[in-house]
Amino acid sequence: MQGTPAIYEFPPFFTKQINEQTWAAQKSNWEKICLNYCKGINQWTLNKNSPVFTNSRIQRTLPAPVILELFNHMVEDGTAAWKIPNEEVYVYIKSPHLLASELVSWTEATGHSGAVITLFELTNGDLSGLSSFESLDPGILSQVLEIVFKQGNATEMREDGEVVGLKLK
């Protein structure tokens, strides 16, 4: 992994520290590393087996119970949400609200008002200027769309009861 801070090479960083203050500092360092890691590879989820939790150079792995505590901390912090409780989290490298407003300003900037786009178009990377949506996790996409619909910036298009696209306003 590139661009990790020096603390990632510090072996005890992979053991939960006893001192409360130290543990708090440790968690916030891990949180930063997770966010950077996900951003770097454009990945929106993490689980207990994600490679970020193992540093093979110093042969250390963050133990699963500690990873769960970290996930809980990130959820509290608003930088993550549980996808599968106690297993996997969505990592908000961008918050759903930010993505929603990106979609709205993209619509205005590119003259797509009134256009209909499918979810497939939205996430396969064909629409230039919307790279944040490329291979976006469906779970996060639906959170974003919910916000956009609620704000009245788009209406949903359904097929067989499922949202398949949106009509932009």
Binding site: P12, T22, T61
Partner: peptide, 23 residues
């Protein structure tokens, strides 16, 4: 360790106690 002056690494035998001062 309790006062945060050292970090404990339990993933080796014997347990190592690291100084974070330089990191």
């Amino acid at each position: 360790v309790a006062s945060g002056l050292l970090w404990i690494d339990k993933q080796v035998q014997p347990t190592q106690y690291w100084s974070p001062a330089a990191v």
